[in-house]
């Protein structure tokens, strides 16, 4: 298609506009995190700091509870990703490879969980977890997050299972595998990229969760990054530089995972991503 230079210019401007809008807020956080405290207010509105310091970052590591929050979030998100992916792989295998009664009903139930307001279970779950001693405990969060993320992870894994031709199952069975062996020894290894993508999506979802974490966690030692950051701010003593540095640190894992799941974004989003 022939396009006029005017059109190309307009397109470049629009593309630049989107990029600036997408990155500007993140840039601003990093900028303030790098600005020395003494010039924070005088340079608050400058697009670039005149001098750069890493003091805020070293302070966050040395003098705040953020390393604990960070580790808690890592533990919770990794465990959630692990458990949700296992459950999702099993369920997705059943959906993709078997015909059975109530299959559609079960799929509908999973879909339903994606759309009902989770706030409705907030208090009841809190009470149940108090009853079994899992409140204010990372394991409680892991159980809840696994439940929230498994339906979506199932649809995602199913799309990866579906992409592998059934002829392979049959070939494996002709070669003497049983149904189960064909599924877990031949088919599952082929879905490994899908398993990795699912891990990535669930990790990102768990890392981002806020409301359950607020409700279910109280003590300093168990706080996730989201809750820790909010409570840090609500304490009143506003240390802008440290907050921005902490936020920048919280961004790092998701950016890493985002780079990793890039290729699967379309699939993840059409499977009804937890995080949207």
């Amino acid at each position: 298609m022939k396009r006029k230079p005017l059109w190309l210019g307009a397109r470049a401007v629009a593309l630049t506009g989107y990029l600036v809008f997408a990155l500007f807020p993140l840039y601003w956080i990093v900028k303030i995190a790098l600005t020395p405290n003494k010039s924070l207010y005088s340079e608050a509105l400058l697009p670039f700091p005149t001098s750069v310091t890493f003091d805020n970052f070293t302070n966050v590591f040395a003098n705040t509870p953020f390393p604990t929050y960070f580790m808690n979030s890592v533990i919770v998100s990794l465990s959630t990703a692990f458990f949700a992916t296992i459950l999702a792989s099993l369920t997705a295998a059943a959906f993709s490879r078997y015909e059975f009664r109530f299959k559609n009903t079960i799929a509908f139930i999973l879909l339903l969980t994606q759309f009902f307001p989770l706030v409705i279970v907030l208090v009841p779950l809190f009470r149940v977890l108090v009853g079994i001693g899992l409140v204010d405990n990372l394991w409680g969060l892991i159980v809840v997050y696994t439940a929230i993320n498994t339906p979506f992870a199932t649809f995602l894994m199913k799309s990866f299972f579906d992409a592998i031709p059934r002829e392979l199952d049959e070939a494996a069975m002709i070669d003497g595998c049983t149904r189960i062996q064909a599924l877990w020894r031949v088919i599952l290894p082929l879905t490994l990229p899908g398993v990795a993508a699912t891990l990535g999506f669930v990790f990102t979802g768990a890392w981002s969760e806020l409301l359950f974490s607020l409700m279910l966690i109280n003590s300093e030692s168990q706080k996730t990054f989201a809750v820790g950051l909010l409570s840090f701010i609500q304490k009143g003593a506003v240390n802008w530089g440290q907050m921005m540095a902490a936020s920048t640190i919280a961004l790092i894992p998701v950016i890493l995972f985002f780079g990793f799941i890039q290729r699967y974004l379309i699939r993840g989003l059409t499977a009804g991503a937890v995080k949207g």
């Binding site: 990029l19 981002s208 950051l229 909010l230 936020s247 961004l251 998701v254 985002f258 890039q262 974004l265």
Partner: peptide
């Protein structure tokens, strides 16, 4: 990769930002 990045930012961080 850059323009889709906001999607990956956790909601609590987007909100604070």
């Amino acid at each position: 990769a850059l323009v889709f990045l906001p999607w990956a930012v956790p909601a609590f961080l987007s909100g604070l930002t």
